[in-house]
Amino acid sequence: MNLTLKVWRQKSANDKGAMVAYEARDISPDMSFLEMLDVVNEELTLKGEDPIAFDSDCREGICGMCGCVINGQAHGPDHGATVCQLHMRKFKDGDTITIEPWRARAFPVVRDLVVNRSALDQIVQAGGFVSVSTGSAPEANSAPVGQAVAETALDAAACIGCGACVAACPNASAMLFMSAKVMHLGVLPQGQPERYDRVSEMVETHDRLGFGSCTNIGECSAVCPAEIPMDVISFLNRDLIRSRAGRGMKRA
């Protein structure tokens, strides 16, 4: 099939950037969306033009490296999938497709569709871990974890850190990303000792980095390729209240 692409081109962080149109010809419906971009890039290269920069690594939907907004939707039209898993059979011959980078204050554009998401790492640095140094762990089966609890933890831990939730949120909040980590560690016995400090430090860092606040719109969860549910956000909010109450008591 043949398609028209309108792609955001921006040479560097300081460049203004603009949408540029390209023709994608002889595209097979079995191609993934990124393979379609590979084909366009090969042609651009042979014509002596700069290929379109975009991130990808695993191309299996797990590393979280890829991501762009396709026709206004983060990761495109396929539900519960990253853009590397999106296949061209979801489009029709003659379609026009707009492709833009994640847009958020905390994610400056690096080039074309590539953005800087290091703010997400900084949120994890603030407390998204269990403080257990190598060698100090007790026997693995010494603390049983009910099957349901383990499943809930894994549902939240499935987040791939792609940042689609931020891109989809009208407030550019990273609440879903952060809450997924808070809930993953917060439901497990291993995460209890640091549970309330973790949540308050992560939230403080999140706000400081320029992410917006959460107003429970739900776009984040709707576009999430790992299908992280909104429940994680209520979990965080409950823990945050308890954390603040606890701190207040300490101060009083």
Partner: peptide, 9 residues
């Protein structure tokens, strides 16, 4: 042991 202690589910 180490991974479980880190919270690997």
């Amino acid at each position: 042991d180490q991974c479980v202690a880190q919270g690997v589910p």
